[in-house]
């Protein structure tokens, strides 16, 4: 086959497939090759083979990017991390409010005791002091909950980092594997739920009672 014929056939195929996709390109190249069997010179065959390989590479890259579910970053990872950070801000603010309220109570008890410095501490003042320390203990549990939420945010950032690394590997070194962190749910380690989704103690008591 002469170069003019090859050019004409390629033009025909291009006209037939104006918005050719990579997999369609592969098909087209195969079609061209099959019709030109025996007519190609060695350099032409080599060139067409390169084109066919390029089409396959693009199709594979598309499939790999789709498998990475990059859309999850904006659809799931970022909103989830944002919600966790919002919950951390709300919880630390609530804990701080509780502790400050208790401090104000302690101030008032202290002032009352100072006025009656010679008198023994009354039962009411002692109860107020005990209640104040209990509330401080309760409020301090925010450190545990917010710590677990921060751990979830860090895991989310690591998941995003892994996806970006996989994308770079896809466009850089071929053949790099797609690695994803094992889901924590496998060990039922879900961590704290967002306040809007969480079961409270009453719900849990009802669920436990349903087993009796």
């Amino acid at each position: 086959m002469r170069d003019a014929d090859l050019g004409r056939r390629l033009e025909e195929l291009r006209a037939r497939y104006p918005a050719a996709q990579p997999d369609v390109m592969v098909e087209v190249v195969r079609a061209v090759l099959s019709t030109m069997h025996g007519d190609l010179s060695a350099p032409q065959a080599s060139l067409l083979s390169e084109v066919e390989e390029l089409g396959r590479t693009i199709a594979t890259a598309k499939a790999e990017i789709a498998a990475l579910k990059v859309d999850d970053i904006t659809a799931s990872h970022i909103p989830s991390a944002t919600d966790e950070l919002d919950a951390i801000v709300a919880h630390t603010a609530a804990a701080t409010d509780s502790i400050l309220e208790v401090c104000e109570t302690l101030d008032r008890v202290g002032e009352a005791l100072a006025k009656d410095a010679g008198a023994p501490v009354g039962a009411a003042a002692a109860a107020q002091l005990q209640d104040a320390t209990t509330r401080i203990y309760e409020a301090c549990s925010f450190q545990d909950i917010t710590g677990q939420r921060i751990t979830k945010v860090v895991a989310t950032l690591q998941a995003i980092e892994a996806k970006v690394a996989c994308m770079l590997a896809t466009f850089g070194e071929r053949g790099a594997g797609i690695e994803r962190p094992a889901p924590a749910e496998e060990m039922l380690l879900n961590g704290p739920q967002l306040p809007a989704n969480a079961m409270d103690q009453t719900d849990i008591d009802k669920l436990l009672a349903s087993f009796d």
Partner: peptide, 27 residues
């Protein structure tokens, strides 16, 4: 625990937990 999903409570009950308190809790 802070684990407050129903699946956690059910798993704990099936494993023989005596009671279950969700964080944050009070005295």
């Amino acid at each position: 625990t802070a684990e407050s999903k129903a699946e956690n409570v059910v798993a704990a009950k099936q494993a023989g937990v005596s009671n279950y308190i969700v964080k944050p809790f009070n005295a």
